[in-house]
Lab assay of single mutants.
Amino acid sequence: EPEARKIVEKLINNGLSPEDVKRWAEKNNNPEVKKAAEEYQKR
């Protein structure tokens, strides 16, 4: 999901860690963003 990846990169560029992004995604019920954050961590 390229859109989710863009969101993850934007949040990380704004100073969030991938863990923060995953928590944000869970709080906002956004499994695509959570998955993208996990993939981002593996890179």
Results as ranks from 00 to 15, higher is better:
residue 28 N to A: 07
residue 42 K to A: 13
residue 13 N to R: 14
residue 18 P to F: 15
residue 13 N to S: 14
residue 19 E to S: 06
residue 19 E to F: 05
residue 40 Y to N: 01
residue 4 A to K: 01
residue 10 K to P: 02
residue 26 E to N: 04
residue 37 A to E: 00
residue 34 K to S: 08
residue 9 E to I: 14
residue 30 N to H: 13
residue 1 E to A: 13
residue 7 I to S: 02
residue 18 P to G: 03
residue 36 A to L: 13
residue 43 R to G: 07
residue 27 K to H: 09
residue 37 A to Q: 01
residue 1 E to V: 12
residue 1 E to R: 11
residue 5 R to L: 13
residue 30 N to Y: 15
residue 38 E to P: 00
residue 16 L to P: 00
residue 31 P to C: 09
residue 26 E to Y: 04
residue 22 K to C: 10
residue 42 K to W: 08
residue 10 K to D: 13
residue 8 V to G: 00
residue 9 E to A: 10
residue 36 A to E: 08
residue 19 E to V: 05
residue 38 E to W: 06
residue 27 K to L: 14
residue 25 A to K: 02
residue 14 N to K: 14
residue 35 K to N: 07
residue 29 N to K: 08
residue 33 V to I: 09
residue 32 E to I: 07
residue 4 A to P: 08
residue 19 E to P: 03
residue 28 N to S: 08
residue 42 K to E: 08
residue 28 N to F: 09
residue 41 Q to A: 11
residue 34 K to P: 01
residue 36 A to H: 04
residue 16 L to W: 15
residue 12 I to K: 02
residue 41 Q to R: 08
residue 19 E to Q: 07
residue 37 A to W: 05
residue 37 A to G: 02
residue 4 A to V: 06
residue 2 P to F: 15
residue 38 E to R: 04
residue 2 P to Q: 15
residue 7 I to N: 01
residue 26 E to G: 03
residue 21 V to Y: 02
residue 27 K to N: 10
residue 39 E to F: 07
residue 23 R to D: 08
residue 40 Y to K: 00
residue 39 E to R: 06
residue 43 R to W: 14
residue 16 L to S: 04
residue 2 P to D: 15
residue 36 A to S: 05
residue 14 N to T: 11
residue 11 L to T: 02
residue 6 K to M: 13
residue 10 K to T: 13
residue 1 E to T: 13
residue 7 I to H: 03
residue 26 E to P: 02
residue 8 V to L: 13
residue 35 K to Y: 07
residue 33 V to T: 02
residue 27 K to R: 12
residue 16 L to M: 14
residue 24 W to T: 00
residue 5 R to P: 05
residue 30 N to D: 07
residue 32 E to M: 13
residue 18 P to N: 03
residue 3 E to D: 14
residue 37 A to F: 05
residue 2 P to G: 14
residue 39 E to T: 05
residue 9 E to S: 07
residue 20 D to M: 09
residue 32 E to S: 11
residue 23 R to M: 09
residue 43 R to Q: 11
residue 5 R to F: 13
residue 3 E to Q: 10
residue 2 P to A: 15
residue 14 N to Y: 13
residue 32 E to P: 05
residue 21 V to T: 01
residue 35 K to D: 06
residue 29 N to C: 11
residue 22 K to R: 11
residue 3 E to P: 08
residue 42 K to Y: 10
residue 1 E to F: 12
residue 25 A to Q: 00
residue 3 E to K: 08
residue 5 R to H: 12
residue 12 I to A: 01
residue 35 K to E: 07
residue 22 K to A: 09
residue 4 A to I: 06
residue 16 L to F: 13
residue 27 K to G: 05
residue 37 A to I: 12
residue 42 K to P: 05
residue 33 V to E: 01
residue 6 K to W: 12
residue 36 A to V: 12
residue 16 L to K: 04
residue 13 N to K: 14
residue 2 P to K: 15
residue 39 E to Y: 07
residue 4 A to D: 02
residue 4 A to F: 06
residue 35 K to P: 01
residue 34 K to L: 14
